[in-house]
Design a protein around this nucleic acid. Structure first.
Lengths: 224, 224
DNA sequence: GTCTATATTTAGATAGAC
DNA sequence: GTCTATCTAAATATAGAC
């Protein structure tokens, strides 16, 4: 194999090694719980190089956080905006692929939601968060499909929370789940695999639940 | 009003003030993100008094963590072990009262689940966690009710995750939800109020979803 | 670009007066 | 019990040689 061919697969640069290590450690321990020494050690480089390449812990974190949020939300964006699939197909694609994605990055949910709570400022401006969800093509389809059933937007909002929650929450509660039910990693994995098909089934049946509008405040003035 | 009568309602002691402040700050910022100075300031006492009363930040945290876990799980324990109500009644009581509880302490879920992930060791021994859930009376009732429908324990486990998740997840995602959907605190509150009745309805309908066992691995060897 | 050594800053903890 | 002042340790950041 020639040297030229190896360029594309050559060893990562020091800068890349640091970024990868930072991603790993920040995701696991959060901003406050991470020491720059941990990152340097994980990357196998000298501590001083962190500041040489990224100026400060905070700047490095901001970079990682930005990329992580992109990853987390953009991976969702593509799945819910496919205009060539039916609602049922899209829901199935979404749960399958997003659960696969989360399985490959199981600490993402708690990292992101925790850091957002610590520092919510300038969240949605940084990326078009509102547009990602509210403008999603799948929402249009939901509304068409449900228009017949007289289901208000406030219930649709509740269902969005449920769909996301049923995929994301198990990862947030994973350490607790594993202890309470003595689950192995394999069992957790197969539980999430089952969810790929269960979530769409559940969602469909939940929409059939007999809702009496008089029982609910229906969150005034919600429109998606 | 006599001085004797005022004893029971007198100002909190310094020790109590510190503990309350510690609870508040730890819940908000987590262990790593909290500085002892924050706690002292919140309590309005001198920094040195923290160590006078509690020896160290870590000891103070352990104390708060212990009490918080008790609060979080014990408040659940009573609700799912009432032997005098039907399954439907108990589910309704559970969702109503547990959501009320979470509304009164909205940072609890993310605090607890985050700290558990950071340091899962000795979790379930510290309190009889397995017994709280697995030994719950409501589980017996679920099994009886579902015995007729041939629903395996692995699906019951999935449903437990759903029940807890539908109550807890909105609080974990609250900052994000509020930004994406422009929710006010009042709207979030009324959303959670609606959930008190929606969750039991949803759960019931989800149990009616048509499940084909061939589609699922059904998590081998799970028994609750 | 990388390293050693060191400076700076921050946070937890304590000594000792009152 | 409480406070001031201070110590110590830890963590971030930088200077300067190579």
């Amino acid at each position: 194999m020639s040297k030229k061919m190896e360029i594309s697969e050559k060893d990562p640069t020091t800068e890349e090694k640091i970024k990868e290590a930072a991603r790993k450690v920040f995701h696991k321990k959060g901003y406050a719980g991470t020491r720059t020494r941990d990152i340097a050690e994980e990357a196998g480089v000298n501590l001083a190089l962190l500041n040489y390449y990224f100026r400060s812990k905070e700047k490095l974190f901001d970079l990682i956080m930005e990329e992580t949020m992109q990853l987390f939300f953009q991976s969702m964006k593509g799945l819910i905006n496919n205009e060539r699939t039916t609602l049922q197909e899209k829901l199935q694609d979404f749960t399958t692929q997003y659960i696969d994605f989360l399985c490959s990055q199981p600490e993402l949910p708690i990292f992101i939601l925790n850091e957002i709570q610590m520092n919510p400022k300038g969240l949605s401006e940084r990326m078009g968060l509102q547009q990602v969800v509210i403008g999603a093509y799948i929402l249009k389809q939901f509304r068409e499909d449900l228009g017949n059933k007289d289901i208000p937007d406030s219930v649709l909002l509740q269902m969005i929370v449920n769909i996301i929650g049923m995929m994301v929450f198990p990862f947030i509660g994973k350490p607790l789940l594993k202890e309470i039910f003595n689950l192995s990693d394999e069992q957790f994995q197969s539980m999430m695999n089952d969810r790929k098909k269960l979530v769409p089934l559940w969602i469909e049946s939940m929409f059939s639940a007999p809702i009496n509008p008089k029982d609910f405040s229906m969150i005034q003035n919600i429109k998606l």
